[in-house]
């Protein structure tokens, strides 16, 4: 396969879902926590890649991974404290929210954008991170809404009376997360084909 095709895969939406699979599966039991997770990941990605773009010439190739993970950790701590202080409803919407927000610090999603930032210019970095983050946010909110409607017959906390008798408890379980995310990824595959999942290098 040519190098050109590989480059196209690097911008495919299914790859974004793969790299952000941990928050996309764990925090999509309700639409509310999905919004929190998506927005959190968007903010961490944007801030980390902007910082890495500013540090472009200063970071050696060998320590790029360590540097970007540590920068992302710093922003994760800051944003987690901010979310906990200002939006406690979001913060406590999900039992394990703290753990998974912490885990975003080592997310391959953030690292991939940060790595691109050290190669590209400032403007391109901001545009690319925003696009990736917003794509991810939209997909995870869809997953969260579907799982909430199927599993609890509510959406963003509002009750849907006609769905009340037809809830599927499995939708809120890990299995439901995998299936709904797979369907969303399949739709993403139709919109924008993602040919070489297996030749992906690195994380």
């Amino acid at each position: 396969m040519s190098k050109n095709e590989c480059r196209q895969v690097k911008t495919g939406p299914a790859l974004l879902l793969l790299l952000g699979a941990c928050p996309a599966l764990a925090l999509s039991t309700t639409a509310l926590s999905a919004v929190t997770a998506g927005a959190f990941l968007l903010a961490v990605t944007l801030l980390t890649s902007v910082t890495m773009a500013l540090l472009k010439g200063l970071v050696a190739k060998e320590i790029k991974l360590a540097a970007s993970v540590l920068v992302a950790t710093g922003y994760t701590v800051l944003l987690r404290l901010a979310v906990g202080a200002w939006l406690p409803d979001f913060y406590y919407a999900h039992g394990d929210m703290v753990l998974y927000l912490n885990a975003i610090a080592v997310s391959p999603f953030v690292y991939r954008q940060a790595e691109h930032a050290t190669e590209n210019g400032f403007g391109k970095t901001v545009a690319e991170s925003l696009l990736a983050g917003v794509c991810f946010l939209v997909s995870i909110v869809v997953v969260g809404a579907v799982r909430e409607i199927l599993g609890a017959a509510t959406v963003f906390g509002k009750e849907l009376t006609f769905m009340k008798d037809y809830t599927i408890a499995l939708a809120q379980k890990p299995f439901g997360g995998f299936v709904v995310l797979a369907l969303v990824a399949a739709v993403a595959n139709i919109i924008r084909p993602n040919k070489c999942m297996d030749c992906k290098k690195g994380a």
Binding site: A14, L15, L17, L18, A21, P174, F175, G177, F178, V179, L181, A182, L183, A185, A186, V187, N189, I190, N194, K195, M197
Partner: peptide, 13 residues
């Protein structure tokens, strides 16, 4: 449409 990630996710599921 199911090739790649969707099939991986279903398997894992």
């Amino acid at each position: 449409a199911m090739r790649g990630l969707p099939l991986s996710l279903l398997t894992a599921g």
